[in-house]
Amino acid sequence: MLEIRSARKVFYKGQPDEKVALDGLDLKLNTGEFGVVIGSNGAGKSSMLNAISGALVLDSGQIVINGDDVTEMPVHKRAMRLARVFQDPMKGTAASMTVAENMLLAELRSKKRSLRQGLNARRLADYRERLALLGLGLENRLDTRVELLSGGQRQSLSLIMAVGGEPELLLLDEHTAALDPRTADIVMQATVRAVDALKLTTLMVTHNMQHAVDFGHSVIMLDAGKLRLEITGDEKAKVTVPDLIGHFAVKTDRMLLAS
């Protein structure tokens, strides 16, 4: 279970261009729940995910994962419990290292790293099997350096890396936004399959209202650093794209196009 308790973060505090990114945000996500986060640009969605992962240090408030207060924990310690996929395909992988090495790094995310050889036959077979699920042929390119892959392939790899090892919490920040529609679809399908199969507690940020309607157990809408709306259960099952768009203060073309 994830709990965010009155999280507050102000950028450029006291300066004329002061920006309140999180304004006393409260949020609860049950174990196994798949929450879809929506909200207009600058609503604080990325800031929330960064605060959960530790990349953003809160001014005040707490982050609690499965009962443990992780607010003071550095990013690399929290990584034992959570995995993320970034919007930018470059960010989630080590470009100059091979596909297999990237998979290894992800596998070791929550383990103690030893002085034994990293890549062995058993691991390579396992990686091949897991990558084959994507149907992109990555399983035959284990020795390819990631910088030679396309953005979509990299993002798919990031996803497989993130869901491996069954993290306590999965954070996805517009992870299909930088991809062409077809690849975005592949990555989205793979995401949903993995999240369902492993019952991962997941927060997924998206600007695609159709995705918010189709996927997840709840819709979480942020506005100006606060929780504006939470739709769960039956209500979520019945919600439509126009319903969601109706909650936005400002409607952008991008939203309508995406739906």
Partner: peptide, 21 residues
């Protein structure tokens, strides 16, 4: 080794390395 691969990852992409624990 596992440790050595981790060190190389820090050079390749420090943010990613950190996110991988």
């Amino acid at each position: 080794t596992e440790k050595g691969t981790a060190i190389r990852a820090v050079g390749a992409n420090p943010d990613m390395a950190e996110a991988q624990g």
